Amino acid sequence: MKALWLTNSFQRRKEQTIRRALEGYEETLTKSPNDPTALEGAAVSLVELGEYQKASDLLEKLVKVIPDKAEAYRLLGEVKFELKDYDGSSSSYRNSLSSSDSIDFDVLRGLTNSLVAAKKPDQAVEVILSCRRKLSEKRQTRQPDLEAANENGAQESRDIDPIQVDLLLGKAYSDWGHISDAVTVYDNLIAEHPEDFRGYLAKGAILKQNGKAGDAERMFIQAKFFAPEAAKALVDIYAQR
């Protein structure tokens, strides 16, 4: 009972802090309606308070007044998803991708989820495949520079994890009902990264969902063998579902 009271008390104090910050941002906006810092701060505060429509209105305004729009569009995509405006969400995520020279995995995942929620999994697959091609081309273009940098002892810059992208692609195929295509993605992932547990885990999960318990169990055994200690419990959860 005491723990519950402490939790509620903490939540009330947190909400009060957010509302005070919101009041400050709103005061700034009365004087400078297009102040980007105040617009973003107020929008984030409103999201934390669950007032998504008001946050959406501010973010719509924010993307019109700042030059670097990628992050604002990402936030707008998240908010519109919460409002169940999946077409608006996917449009915002697309704008975020096109506003940046790099591919942000959180944006790609958000766009995928929005398209699937809008019952457009085919478009989700198309977007992920396009991003995969871009990442592959970028790696090939950068390879000579990376080799030279490594020779000089320079630190290699990091792109998003290609394994995460492939896992997302497999899930999109699965959501589309193209189970064999999803399994093929996971098979290729296992072949290319045989010591990474995630390919085995994803394949095991989809096989189990489709009634192939024996084949799934073999995948889970492999996944647990290669999984780091901290991830073994996750494998068990999927295996026991």
Rank of each mutant, 00 (worst) to 15 (best):
C131K: 15
A118K: 00
A148K: 12
P33R: 13
D166A: 11
G153S: 08
R218E: 09
I237V: 08
Y93W: 11
E51T: 00
R198K: 12
E195P: 02
R133C: 06
N8H: 15
G88C: 00
V235D: 07
N34Y: 13
L207F: 11
N152R: 15
V116H: 01
R158A: 08
V125H: 03
E156D: 11
W176E: 04
L201K: 14
S32P: 03
H193V: 07
R109T: 06
E217F: 15
A148I: 06
S89C: 01
A202L: 09
L111A: 06
N188C: 10
E15T: 12
V165M: 10
V125G: 02
V107T: 14
L146D: 08
E192R: 11
A38P: 04
E51R: 06
F226L: 03
E217W: 15
V185K: 06
P67W: 15
F225W: 08
K120A: 02
V47W: 00
D236F: 08
E23P: 08
Q140P: 03
E195H: 12
L168E: 09
P194I: 06
K120H: 01
G41F: 10
I221Y: 08
R74A: 11
E147G: 02
S91C: 02
V165W: 11
G153H: 10
Q16M: 11
L108D: 07
N113T: 04
T17H: 15
L83R: 00
H193Q: 14
L49V: 02
K232E: 11
K138C: 06
D175H: 06
R142G: 05
N113K: 12
E78R: 01
D35M: 09
S89R: 01
I179K: 10
V125I: 13
R74Y: 15
P144G: 04
D161L: 13
V185L: 09
V235H: 08
E151K: 14
A154S: 11
G24R: 13
R142L: 09
E48I: 02
I66F: 10
G204F: 12
A233N: 13
K2P: 05
D145S: 12
S9Q: 15
A230D: 15
E82D: 02
F226A: 03
L76S: 02
D166K: 13
L115M: 03
F81M: 02
L39I: 04
A21H: 11
Q222T: 02
P144S: 06
Y173C: 04
F197T: 05
T28S: 12
D166Y: 12
H178M: 10
K208T: 07
S90T: 01
L59R: 01
G204N: 13
V183M: 14
F197G: 05
A72W: 04
T37I: 13
F197D: 09
L146N: 07
Q143D: 07
P144A: 06
S90R: 01
D68A: 15
S157E: 13
V63C: 05
